[in-house]
Design a protein around this nucleic acid. Structure first.
Length: 487
RNA sequence: GGCCCCAUCGUCUAGCCUGGCCUAGGACACCGGCCUUUCACGCCGGCGACACGGGUUCGAAUCCCGUUGGGGUCACCA
């Protein structure tokens, strides 16, 4: 029994963004797949902030990252905002830890000081490119004598620290890509500590993943070529090597890696454009992965249940906005309860200057939710519930004038309601039935004039609902305006 | 350019490992129709793909080789 318990060691995964901008969809998908894996396996999910690039990292970005992740519905067990046994979870706060391991590598001879200046290296690099061969660091400073070192120091050159890469072929098995083999000749001795003393990504990521006891490193395919660099460090330090899973990257419509230049591809932008987090969550989980049956609208629990890393496909995917739009529409009209969609819609109503109380918003949402796909669509679709000053376009004027029944229909309707104190959907139906019989108009011939009179538009929500929601006084007001305008 | 990865409708994908059930399935988009006395939702139908060329095999989307195309990566960024 005790053995059994020990064997069931919890898996630990992490999402490690650098706070250099908004959370974009590529990273969001990586975070999501880590989260899905954690949920499926019952493992621990860690958020770690990779802010060793002092130039680009900003505290504000970290806060936005956390906000966006939470909005998406991704939760972590340990992180900079909530602590945990393996903290701190911000790399800028772990510098002393890194330096301990740098010293260790220096002592064991696995790392060395390098005094080559950036200018020198740049020259070498240019030369290599000119000669058509790939650039690798020459290893010039690998075996400096104490005298040579003191000479450089005396000149005031601040050294970087490089890892002494052993000559070998690194082999590892990636959960998604299978066996990957890369020769260390491909990269050569790389920098692990900058001249300013700040350690570099490929080094710190190893220390953190090892110390935080990460068992599965799930990240974007763009890190595939970094993996052997990291493995040689794991080996030099005697750490356990985690299991790797490199996700296919997400491409923009031009088939290159998704980035800022592809326009609004941050989750923040999606949120502002009126997408629901549930829909984004659902759509993102279908990029590179798919459930066993053909149902695509899936509640989170179902995704947790079915998600398996082994089922993630290898080919990159282009993010399909159209499908997200459609899916968002499904969530708006079918999945979320009316009360909930209305809550989400409030800020948009207010943003459009459509002022009303929650109950009114709810009625409007009930009327329009079948015909909108994002909250931004509310602006056009719900306008008729808020704006009484209708402007008749030239085309409308022409149309009304050219059809004598047009005016008559509206007038007849007005006559029937002008003394009423209220109007319901049913009232509307009865009245239109009467007009149908009296004037001999039906279908479009009947509804179109009323729609124009009440909204100025030739399409929109069901009129029976419209009149009920805006109420008798506003109906009278709008009809009277029409009649006066064309009378 | 070196190295690595990928390759099914326009897009997301099922099938590929364990060849025959594939006349290649689903979804979005698009087109047409039905429902609705108006709008929308919904329903039904249509269009549309195994990158190419060689093998292997009785049989290949599925296995092998090559070609082409696309992508990633080559920092004192992450």
């Amino acid at each position: 029994m005790i053995m059994d318990f020990r064997r069931k060691k919890l898996k630990r995964v992490r999402f490690a963004p650098s706070p250099t901008g908004y959370l974009h969809l590529g990273n969001a998908r990586t975070a999501l797949f880590n989260y899905l894996f954690a949920k499926h396996e019952g493992s621990t999910f860690i958020l770690r902030i990779e802010d060793t690039d002092l130039e680009r990292s900003k505290k504000e970005y970290e806060e936005m990252l956390i906000e966006d992740l939470k909005w998406l519905g991704i939760e972590w067990d340990e992180g900079p905002d909530r602590g945990g046994k393996y903290g701190p979870y911000r790399q800028s706060e772990r510098l002393d830890i890194y330096h301990k391991y740098v010293d260790k590598l220096l002592k064991s001879g696995d790392a060395y000081y390098c005094y080559c200046t950036e200018e020198e290296l740049e020259k070498e690099r240019e030369k290599a490119i000119a000669e058509g061969r790939p650039y690798r660091y020459s290893g010039k400073c690998r075996n400096l004598t104490e005298e040579e070192r003191s000479e450089y120091e005396a000149k005031g050159i601040k050294p970087v620290i490089r890892f002494k890469v052993p000559e070998k072929t690194v082999v590892f098995e990636d959960v998604i890509r299978g066996v990957v083999e890369i020769d260390t000749k491909e990269f050569g001795d790389f920098v692990i500590v900058r001249a300013d003393g700040m350690p570099v990504y490929n080094f710190v990521v190893v220390i953190d993943d090892a110390l935080m006891e990460i068992t599965h490193v799930i990240r974007g395919e763009d890190h595939l070529s970094n993996t052997p660099k990291q493995i040689v460090i794991y080996e030099a330090l005697g750490f356990n090597i985690p299991t790797f899973a490199h996700l296919p990257i997400i491409l923009g419509e031009d088939r290159t890696k998704l980035s800022k230049r592809h326009g609004a591809v941050s989750v923040r932008a999606l949120k502002d454009e009126g997408y629901l987090s549930e829909a984004v969550f659902n759509a993102l989980s279908l990029l590179g992965w798919h459930p066993k049956d053909e149902k695509e609208i899936l509640p989170k629990e179902e995704i947790f249940k079915q998600f398996r890393l082994e089922d993630v496909n290898k080919s990159p995917a282009i993010f399909d906005r159209n499908k997200l739009r459609w899916m968002n529409g499904v969530y708006i009209r079918e999945i979320l309860p009316l009360e909930e969609v209305t809550k989400r819609a409030v800020e948009f109503f207010e943003g459009f200057g459509y002022k009303a109380d929650f109950e009114y918003y709810k009625k409007v949402m009930e009327a329009v939710r079948d015909s909108i796909e994002t909250m931004l669509d509310i602006k056009e679709r719900a306008k008729v519930f808020f704006v009484d000053e209708i402007i008749f376009s030239e085309d409308v004027v022409k149309e009304v004038r050219s059809d004598e029944k047009f005016y008559k229909v509206v007038e007849a309707f007005y006559q029937k309601i002008k003394d009423k104190g209220g109007i319901s959907k049913e009232d509307f139906k009865t009245i239109t039935k009467e007009i149908q019989q009296e004037l001999g108009v039906k279908g479009k011939g009947l509804f179109h004039p009323l729609r124009i009179a009440l909204t100025g538009e030739s399409s929109g929500v069901g009129l029976d609902i419209l009149v009920e929601v805006i109420g008798i006084e506003r109906v009278k007001f709008r009809l009277k305006r029409f009649l006066e305008y064309f009378g």
